[in-house]
Each structure stands twice: as C-alpha cells, then as structure tokens.
Write a protein that binds this DNA or RNA. Structure first.
Lengths: 198, 198
DNA sequence: GTCCAAAACAAACAGTTGTTTTATCCGGAC
DNA sequence: GTCCGGATAAAACAACTGTTTGTTTTGGAC
C-alpha cells in the first residue's frame, strides 16, 4: 500500500486503540488507565501500541481535540445563524445532549480529563472550551437584547448554570433508557429556559 | 497523654493528612495522586503516613463520607421542614453552593472520586448520593403538588438538571471572585426556578 | 536523669508504570 | 520462490506504586 507518506490515513487499528482508550479514560480516568489496559482491550501487547500512537498523552490529546470539535460543530452554527435566540438556544441544548448521548464516555474525557494534558497542549484545549462557553453566552446575550430573556439575572452565572447541567448529563444519561437523547434534551431545555416555577 | 484507647481522638496530624489528600485528590484525582505526594505536602516521609491512616483508600473513604454528610446536613432539614416548597428549594440550592464554596476541592472529590472506592465501600457511598438526590426530588414533588411548580415537565430530568448545575459549580466557583457563595447561590436559584425566558 | 509509647525516618518489598529495543512474523510485490 | 516493510511479540528499561519493616527520634510522666 503505502500511499503518500505524510497523509494521516492510519487505518483501523489506530481507531480501535482510540476507541478503547476513550472508553477506559472515560470510565477509569486517564491516570487510572494503563497502557496495558488499553492493549488488552484491543488484543495487543502494550509495546505494540507504539506502532500506531506516539504516546499515552498524544492519545488523550487526540480524543479530547476530536471530542470538543464535535460540540463546537453543532453549537457554532447556531451562534452565526439569524433567527429567534430562544429557538437557537433550545437547539444548542438539545444538540449538546445528543452529542453526549452519542458517546457518554468520550464526553467524560472531554469534560474531566483535559487536566492531564501536558502544559504545551493545555492552552489550546482550554481555548476551545472557552469558545464553546462563549457560544452560549453570545446567544443568551442576543436573547436579552431582543427582550426575550430576562435582563435582570446574572448573565455569566446563568450560562454556567446551563453548561453545568449539560456537562453533568454523561453522569446519568443512559442510551438504554426509555427517553431518547432528543427527548431528554427538550426536557432539559424546558427546565432551563422556562424554569420550574408554575 | 493516651486517653481511653479505642476513642477516635487522633489529633492534628491526621487532619493535616486528610486536608492535604483532599486538596490533591480534588486537583489531580485519586489515581493521579501518590502517597509520596501527600507525604510531601504534610512534610513527612511516605511510610510515616501509616502511623495515622490505614490505607490510601481509607483516606478517600473518610473524605467522601465526611463530604457527603455536609451536603446532607444542610439539605435534609429542608425536606422535613414545613413551609413553602419554593422557598425550601431555593434554600437548598443556595446552601449547596455554600457548601461547595467552603471547600471546592472536597466537593470535587465527593462528586468524582467515589468511583475509586473499593466494592465494599461503594454501595454505602452511592446510597448516600441517592439520598441527597431524593431530597431535591421530594421538595420538587411537594412544589408540584402544591401547584407552585410546573406539573408538565419531566420531574426526574428537572431534578437532574438542577443537581447537574449545582455539581458543576466547583469547576468554576472562585472564593476570590467578587460574588459571595450566597450571591452565586441566589443567582443560580433565580435561573433554575424562574428560567431565563422573560 | 529513666522509661515508655507515639511518631518519624530510612530502607526496602514486590508489583506496576510508560516506553524502548530487538527479533520474529506476515502479506503483498516482484 | 525471494524480498521488503509494517505489525506484532517478547523482553527489558528505569522510574514509580502502595505498603511494610526495623530502627531512631521525640516529648511527656515519673
């Protein structure tokens, strides 16, 4: 085979390793997972992993980078979009839950394991997280300006409240549950946008 | 000195170790923290720790048990109390933030590191977590029954949304910030109870 | 001062960590 | 068939893991 050399085509095994690592990092954490755990999960010896990856940390970086990208990919269009801020925020909430539901373990890695990135990689990961937070802040601000959202509540805290509720979902969402991700997302949007007071 | 032998009076050093462990477990996680880290933080050699604690895991168990107790201690009275469910829920939200603010790192351990408890200790910790969740569910249910809270939204999801937002606070709350814990709690209660829609 | 127990040190334990090295295997090109 | 390059195995590396052991230090009671 051997296509053009510096094309990142690495076939299946690299993906299998990334999936196993994602699964394990999400369940046991980065520091709680050994290369031997990962190797065992994909049916290889620990040393053999290094034919496909550079290091344990590079593996983490790839999982996190790819993971954040998925959240940004569904949120950023809603920021740029014209239209009712209320509808856009509702879409962002529901989309977030759908991304979580698609792979709760990856989300856990994205939300919790970024602390273990090396100093060189940390700033970029943090920057991407801020970008995501800013998406929500922007749409809420749009809503306040249009008069559809309350102007009298602390904007930053309202956004952090929403994001907190969303980031906690991988802790309890089960794909086996009777509610679909979309339904859960809609219910959460109901609670967060309208509150629970009758 | 030597008081009655089986009294659990262990003086200061045990507390110093627990505080250092709390700090480190919260920041680096249980598996990311070594006994040598803890020993270094309290100015001891690693082996010397075992004059005060039974094991690394016993340390984790103590921190978590004590931690959950603090949340239960402020929430359970509000469940038993007679009075406006809306006010009680607001109190529970504000009190939760205050407990987090008092020591965000301990809260991180309580919320995230319980997974690393041994099988023997896990069930009790999980049971206590459920008890805390049940407190919120009960008060929300009271509110729905009294007609003060919406009956048409998914109760379980509403509670998990509230708890998620609350459990995420140690991630961003800073004691150095300009808002006090009480003020943050009030703002979160505003957002969660009343929603953000004008 | 002597004595004693609690606490600390110093050193080691067996096992695990991420990673590297060397050699063997295997499938396709020729 | 031979040859070649990528994937795997096998073994080892130094460093680190939680914990135990034996010894020394400490500080108060007498």
């Amino acid at each position: 085979m051997a296509l053009a050399p510096n094309v990142e085509t690495d076939g299946k095994p690299r993906l299998a390793i990334m999936n196993a690592a994602m699964h394990l990092f999400g369940k046991q954490g980065f520091t709680g997972t050994s290369m031997r755990d990962i190797a065992g999960a994909v049916g290889l010896l620990p040393g053999s992993l290094y034919a496909h990856i550079a290091s344990k940390e590079a593996l983490l970086l790839d999982i996190i980078t790819d993971g954040i990208e998925r959240f940004l990919a569904v949120a950023e269009p809603q920021v740029a979009a014209a239209g009712d801020p209320l509808v856009r925020l509702r879409n962002m909430i529901a989309a977030h839950v759908e991304v979580v539901a698609e792979n709760p373990e990856r989300s856990q890695v994205v939300f919790h394991q970024w602390r273990f990135l090396a100093e060189d990689n940390l700033p970029e990961a943090i920057e991407r997280r801020s970008r995501y937070e800013a998406c929500f802040a922007q749409v809420v601000e749009d809503g306040v300006r249009s008069g559809q959202m309350k102007a009298d509540l602390n904007l930053r805290i309202a956004v952090l409240t929403i994001l907190g509720a969303l980031n906690w979902t991988p802790e309890w969402f089960s794909p086996a549950g009777k509610l679909s991700a979309r339904e859960v997302g809609e219910s959460m949007a109901d609670a967060l946008l309208g509150g629970i007071v009758a």
